[in-house]
Amino acid sequence: MSSETRPPVGLTVAAGLGLLFLHLPILLIFLYAFTTEERTYQFPPPGLTTKWFAVAWAREDIWPPLYLSLKVAAISTALALVLGTLAAAAMSRARFFGREQLSLLILLPIALPGIITGMSLRSAFDVMGMPFSTWTIVLGHATFCIVIVFNNAVARFRRLSGSIVEASADLGANGFQTFWHVILPNLASALLAGGMLAFALSFDEVIVTTFTAGQQSTLPIWMLNELVRPRQRPVTNVVAIVVFATTFVPILLAYYLTRGGDDTAGAGK
């Protein structure tokens, strides 16, 4: 008997359909951004126009949420980069008591449903009488972004030959010189990838945010409101494309920064 090397036709078709299922819906958003129909989701669109991009640009209620989303994503990513890298460095150094528990603690904010993280923070703010602000949103976002940076950094630390750190010390470098000249250059692309994924995740996050934002509006919350109570549907489509692009580009970059290794970014969202 020969081993099977060619895939069965049924499997190929099923796999192809599965991939199409994953991608076609997203493409549809692009089409709808150009429709002339304003009130319904009519398909096929009765006509095509580019005017909605101009309309969206002129809408003043879009800019503050966009600005807030970018600000939150930037601060959360910066915090996650520091905290995630520190945790990964500690993990790579030694086996210590509570190591397993720590990795579980880091994983928990994305392993448990977002609504739990959100509701927990909401409860805590309520208990402490803390008013909602940019920082309440950041508290939530940084918490679930840590694991993204951590995963990327820990994989790179594992691949990094432990002896190059020793070689550096052996040649006379102190810990700070070793970090600056040897660890950081080898870690940089993994951190960049982790940072971009964290940024994309934060920029797009809506579930935790609705619990920590109060009356503030991030771009995803703005979009959610438009979905529940639509005003100008094609404008929402344009914003959807912007959100999609803002998350898509960093993901693609992160993939290319880390591909080829066993630590390709993003496998563990």
Partner: peptide, 20 residues
């Protein structure tokens, strides 16, 4: 005396060259 202050140097088994 920590390793970086010992005037002793090592050729590592896997060479440990800095890849970057």
């Amino acid at each position: 005396v920590p390793p970086n202050r010992r005037n002793v140097n090592t050729v590592f088994q896997d060479y440990a060259l800095f890849p970057h």
